Simulated scan of single mutants.
Amino acid sequence: MAYDGNVRVGGEPHVHELADLVITKVAVGPMENNAYLLRCRATGEQVLIDAAAEPETLLRLIGDDGISSVVTTHRHGDHWGALRAVVDATGARTLAGRHDAEGIPVPTDVLVDDGDTVRVGRVELTARHLAGHTPGSIALVYDDPHGHPHVFSGDCLFPGGVGNTFGDSRAFASLVDDVETKLFGPLPDETWVYPGHGKDTTLGAERPHLQEWRERGW
């Protein structure tokens, strides 16, 4: 079955198979978060993005091969609810944006800054600091050498707009500026976007609406 990323809580994970990387997406409750398991084809190393909830579901997904790291995209509790349980079960190290780490109750082993490299075996992803939804939110960009880029956007970019900035106009301006400069600017329309909740999208599907988002202010 072709990957479409339309997962649901309690449903089956969806698998996006790339030449060097296998991406498995699962939805977990109670806030319908997406978690992503990345596996390097060459080495078998695995990294989890957002241990959001349902540790038993995530640990089944991880399987016997374990994970080397868990990346938390931002400090909101629905994105780290299962982090302690997953780290205790796997011994994985933890990564998070430098400016959000203090808001995550599980200690962060690696503080991530804009432009840092996050490795999954031989695969490299680039961290992008996108301030606004939270001070230290990060996205991860995989520029697939065999195809188009892939972005794990946390709660910073969704189908139909940027993440919630809770009525703070300065935070909104910061987020939409960062998203436009660091994602839409350098990356092509074919770039696949994997958000923290809900369905996937592409930069091409969202690009025509950037000015509309700015005008509406959310």
Score class of each variant (00 low, 15 high):
A82S: 06
G147N: 12
P135K: 12
G10D: 11
H197W: 08
G161E: 02
H79L: 15
A35M: 04
H16L: 13
E180H: 07
T181S: 14
T165F: 09
R119G: 00
F152C: 00
S169D: 14
Q211G: 01
A173V: 00
A52F: 11
T117H: 03
R119L: 07
A52L: 10
D78A: 12
I104S: 04
N164G: 03
T57F: 13
G136D: 04
A53S: 14
T94F: 03
H209W: 14
T117I: 06
E102L: 05
D155G: 15
D20Q: 05
D100F: 03
G196Y: 09
R75I: 06
D200M: 05
G121A: 07
A51G: 06
E32L: 04
V106N: 05
L61H: 12
G11W: 14
D64Y: 07
G147T: 09
V110G: 06
V47H: 02
E12A: 15
M31H: 15
E54V: 11
L140M: 02
P159I: 01
H150Y: 09
G44W: 12
P188R: 10
D144G: 04
L111S: 00
P13F: 13
G161P: 11
G97V: 03
G81H: 13
D155I: 03
H129D: 07
D4P: 02
V15W: 14
D143P: 01
G163R: 05
V123H: 09
R128C: 08
G136K: 05
L37V: 13
L83N: 01
L18A: 15
D64N: 11
E102R: 13
D178C: 12
T72F: 10
F172M: 03
H99I: 04
